[in-house]
Amino acid sequence: MGTKRHFRVWRGDSAGGDIEDFDVEVNEGEVVLDIIHRLQATQTPDLACRWNCKAGKCGSCSMEINGKPRLGCMTRMSTFEEDETVTITPLRTFPVIRDLVTDVSFNYDKARETPAFAPPPGVAPGDYRMQQVDVERSQEFRKCIECFLCQNTCHVVRDHEENKAAFSGPRYFIRAAELDMHPLDDRTDRKEYAQSHQGMGLCNITKCCTEVCPEHIKITDNAIIPMKERVVDRRYDPLVWLGRKIFRRDQLDGDGENMAPSSSVGVTDVAKGAPFTTNRGPEGPEVREDGRMDVTEVTLPTQGGPSPFGDQQFPLPSGRVAYQPPAPQYGVHDDGQDGDHGTDGHHQGH
């Protein structure tokens, strides 16, 4: 038998809302997400909340608990005092859909804009060979569960909505760093990309992304600062610039002119003239005359209930994908002394 504790939960949608008060039973060993579930089961059956694994690995139940961006499933009730009021609100940085559910498509737009892994030409999947010591740094960033708590807490977009077009956010800085440090990634223009199109210069390294990361990725120290230093190599360091001129490295790799532009310049819909928006267009399934959707599977093409955002049919019809992947730019890396990929392995695979 648990105790009754006081909770305040934000309820509402894009039209407005407010924080409502609840008294809910709390048992030993429970987490905040359990309380949300108890609320749904006992008092507010229509309280909206995203969740999946309850183990801190799916990144779904991101919310703000007592003002701090946290995962609901990883915040133990034992960390609060018995008489403490717990306030639960949706992520502030993203448009709210309903209650604790926000539209995080900003992040998916930014993900689509980030150029994908580009192995050297002629090396087929299956022939990738690399040494552990070379790929170790990139592996830290693969722990990311995409909960978007870092994106949410970053004041660059949290407090300044107008920066959303120009700023990709910490989650995509670690993606840029992961690929730039990857031993088999052959693109040489990721540093320029991080600066010009991801808006790395907007980051003022106040480290909130690192503070909130539930996977404890050292986002600032291991990704953003190393990437900033790599950008300095290319853009701000006259000595490195002189060295590149003298050893003529600058003729081997370009300055990123044929690099993928971002939404601010236009790879996604923005390229086609649409203004930048985090709002989704109407793409929902058929609705009945009363504006509501059927829940029955019989009339639907897929199993389960329809997604409120519409169900995607695969393969996507051609012309539907707004994103045009840029052609990778290959070349020699500015690797201190030499630039080929020879000795560490992937040629052995042939």
Binding site: P95, V96, T102
Partner: peptide, 16 residues
């Protein structure tokens, strides 16, 4: 279905 917010192209954030 979630629709377009009242403020135009940007869906508003949660009113806190």
């Amino acid at each position: 279905k979630p629709g377009v917010g009242p403020s135009g192209p940007h869906n508003p954030r949660a009113a806190i």
